[in-house]
Nucleic acid binder design. Structure first.
Lengths: 171, 171
DNA sequence: CAGTAACCTTACTCCCAAGTAAGATCTGGG
DNA sequence: CCCAGATCTTACTTGGGAGTAAGGTTACTG
């Protein structure tokens, strides 16, 4: 049900995806969607929230707290790419609507973004760099999904190099 | 006229900005917009095209072809930040709608993106890195616009460091 | 001063999609 | 077997905004 919604949000964007379509794709009737989610925005929020939740959890699980910072970052990035690979719709929605600040939709995605940059901030202790790094990661993931011939490790390695540049610059 | 449209596209997004609003903001009547641009998409395309045009031109002018690659990159980045600073609406539209691939709108923005990553590709000779770097730049610009207390040079320097990491990794 | 053409506006039509009212169907308890 | 309540559907209403038809206004020419 959320999956049907997600697929259409990803394919068409929030506005262009109609509730009729979503209902049909979910094998259900429209009033049911309203019954469960209250409104189109409610549905969207529920979907974004669950996707974000899943993404964060994957990253958390991947990085064992005892490992050195560098390894935790690598594991987190790997989990990130893997999630994007396996849930393209979820990733597309999170990424696409991530920047557009159409007020009611924005807050949900903002939350995710803050949690992610928060994690990066704890590593890098530099808010600007954290945002730049997050942007680099997101763009690279989009590019990598469109160019599957490049191995995942290469992409992760590239990002690790960028992270390394920060440490080099700090000394 | 394009400026009124741009302000509203930036503030509300493509869908939520109505032609009535734009016409009123431009001090003109709606049929005039249709007379000049044919459709809402036409107007949008015209605006995006002119913004992209302006941005690219600034970057071109900034980087003298004779300077060493590193200086040209720095000058280009500086021009980029300056443009974003002075034309927030234009930048917001380019950045926000940059990822959302709502078919008819996408192509215009795609063009810009390709030209930019093309420039980066010529410098770095690595498509993946070029995309990552572009993403880092865009995100950093958004962050920097929201945190004006950080000087422009610092942001540019941060990106130059990232660029440097690429050269270091290549050796 | 008329006629004409470029230019612009008011005042619509029409469609699409969000949201809903009213009733059908299915389930379990007496 | 019948009733109550949850669950779901068909079939609307409604609003907003893209696009347009028809007519007004200005400016220029004989």
């Amino acid at each position: 049900m959320l999956r049907a919604a997600g697929d259409l949000f990803a394919a068409r964007g929030f506005h262009a995806a109609s509730m009729d379509e979503i209902a049909e794709a979910a094998g259900i009737s429209k009033p049911m969607l309203y019954n469960y989610f209250g409104s189109k925005e409610g549905l969207y929020a529920a979907y974004v929230r669950s996707s974000a939740q899943a993404l964060i959890q994957r990253m958390r699980e991947a990085a064992s707290p005892s490992a050195p910072a560098q390894e935790r970052l690598r594991a987190g990035l790997l989990a990130f790419l893997t999630y994007a690979e396996q849930h393209r719709a979820g990733w597309a929605v999170l990424h696409n609507e991530a920047t557009a600040q159409s007020d009611p939709l924005a807050t949900e995605v903002m939350n995710l973004r803050e949690r992610l940059t928060g994690m990066l901030n704890r590593i890098f202790d530099d808010d600007g760099f954290a945002h730049a790094f997050a942007g680099a990661t997101e763009s690279l993931v989009s590019w990598w999904l469109a160019h599957p011939e490049h191995p995942k490790d290469l992409a992760v390695g590239l990002l690790m190099n960028i992270a390394e540049s920060k440490r080099a610059a700090d000394t």
